[in-house]
């Protein structure tokens, strides 16, 4: 990506660039506060789950969060700088040895546990 494109990208989206995102990585448990618009009404949905990948760079970076809801795996892919993402809370940091945890997809219950990470 050229420097010019990177620069322009930040310029046009200046009001939406988030500089206060907490640091978190794959394996961590996060809580996403998402603005949902349905039927002309707005509400905030909280989605809590495990980060299984962070993808992309700069303004177009996205995060994939997975949780198991009622026995069904649910994954949400959210652009980190999206105006719909109001807040990210880090609930727990875990130690993992890879950046993408797709192997979590095959796991349920106790198998989903990870060891805590310092810092």
């Amino acid at each position: 990506m050229s420097h010019l494109l990177r620069e322009i990208e930040h310029l046009i989206n200046a009001p939406y660039v988030k500089s206060d995102l907490p640091s978190f990585r794959a394996g961590d448990i996060v809580r996403l506060h998402l603005k949902i618009v349905e039927g002309g009404k707005e509400r905030i949905q909280v989605f809590e789950g495990m980060v299984i990948q962070r993808r992309g760079s700069g303004l177009r970076e996205t995060v994939t969060v997975r949780k198991v809801s009622g026995g069904v795996g649910v994954e949400r892919i959210v652009p980190l700088h999206s105006p719909f993402l109001l807040k990210v809370e880090v609930i727990r940091r875990n130690r993992v040895r890879r950046a993408r945890l797709f192997y979590m997809r095959g796991r349920l219950g106790k198998a989903l546990r990870l060891k805590r990470r310092e810092g």
Partner: peptide
Amino acid sequence: KVGMTSFFTPNGD
């Protein structure tokens, strides 16, 4: 052409 990117608006990108 310089390239493509996302343009954020209050209603999405």
